[in-house]
């Protein structure tokens, strides 16, 4: 396998007057869970369709596992797995038959296919129900089965398009845990689109953010957090006054200090020991009840990036 699983260069796709993907350039390293974040309609699904060679780009190029998506799309599809917008399962068939069909599609030899189906169905906890028609299964169970199908043929790269969309909290959490466990165990590269920031934060080693088809940011979640601002300190209590704000703002390590919703909110330039700051606040006569130190969440980063783009 190449070091880079996906290489995208100036990829653009128009639908009539609408530009769904706009001059997108990106590299996805092998062996990571790569989060592709963006609001609804930002071009995430179109990008997956382009990478799978299901759509031709208007301009630009993309390589998946070293294959050109325009000229070698069949090779790309042969080497990848996909869980698209919908589970894409045959509800009139059993779980076993659904996997059996795709096992045959990927030409896995019969004995190996049977063993692999048993392994995956056991892993997602439905082996005992393998002969049931899946029509009456819950959405979460179907989604897990669809994920197992995407991994059936040991693909080095899997595309997952909003796999937890529409699932309740319990089902989404279970699916995320399964995804993380499967990805680690199978050692696959995962290209995961989502608009759920908590999901991306929990799973992804690297993320890219797109808006209206354009790449807004790319990097490790910590790098993106750094872009959106340094660590934050929140002080709960009473007696906040202008004097303490002035003293705080005069400190070189403090970027901003404001009173928000009755709390004192301090943004720092970098990670530091906050004890001297707390001491300053107490000495200034503030009644301190609680001090919280934290980083900007990926959601806050995302909102900042969306705001910047506007």
């Amino acid at each position: 396998m190449t070091e880079t699983a996906i290489r995208i260069e100036n990829l653009t796709r128009d639908f009539g007057q609408v530009r769904a993907v706009d001059n997108l350039s990106l590299e996805v390293p092998s062996g990571t869970i790569f989060g592709f974040l963006g609001p609804n309609g930002s071009g995430k699904t179109t990008t997956i369709n382009l990478l799978l060679g299901l759509l031709e780009p208007t301009s630009g190029e993309a390589e998946v596992l070293g294959y050109n998506t325009r000229t070698q799309a069949d090779k790309v599809r042969a080497q990848t797995g996909a869980l698209l917008e919908y589970p894409g399962l045959y509800e009139q068939l059993s779980a076993e038959d659904n996997l059996e069909f795709y096992g045959r599609v990927w030409r896995i030899p019969a004995l190996e296919r049977q063993a692999r189906i048993e392994e995956l169905l056991t892993h997602i906890g439905v082996w005992e129900r393998r002969t049931e028609r899946i029509a009456k299964w819950s959405r979460g169970e179907k989604q897990k089965l669809a994920m197992a199908r995407a991994l059936l043929h040991h693909p080095p790269l899997v595309f997952l398009d909003e796999p937890t969309a529409g699932l309740d909290v319990m089902a989404a959490t279970a699916l995320r845990e399964d995804l993380a466990a499967l990805a680690t165990r199978e050692g696959v590269t995962v290209f995961l689109t989502t608009h759920n920031m908590a999901e991306a934060e929990r799973l992804c080693g690297e993320v890219a953010v797109i808006r209206q088809g354009k790449l807004v940011a790319v990097g490790h979640p910590d790098e993106l957090r750094a872009r959106a601002g340094g660590p934050q300190v929140e002080v709960m209590g009473g007696g906040f006054n202008d004097d303490v704000l002035s003293q705080l703002r005069a400190r070189p390590e403090v970027a901003t200090a404001d009173i928000q919703n009755g709390h004192l909110a301090i943004n720092l330039h970098e990670e530091i020991d906050v004890a001297p700051l707390v001491s300053l606040i107490v000495n200034a006569g503030v009644r301190v009840e609680e001090v919280r130190k934290g980083k900007a969440s990926l959601e806050e980063v995302f909102l900042t990036l969306m705001e910047e783009e506007r």
Binding site: L52, L54, Y86, L89, W106, A146, F159
Partner: peptide
């Protein structure tokens, strides 16, 4: 259909 089309 889309899953089938995304196969080999």
């Amino acid at each position: 259909l889309s899953t089938l089309l995304a196969s080999r």
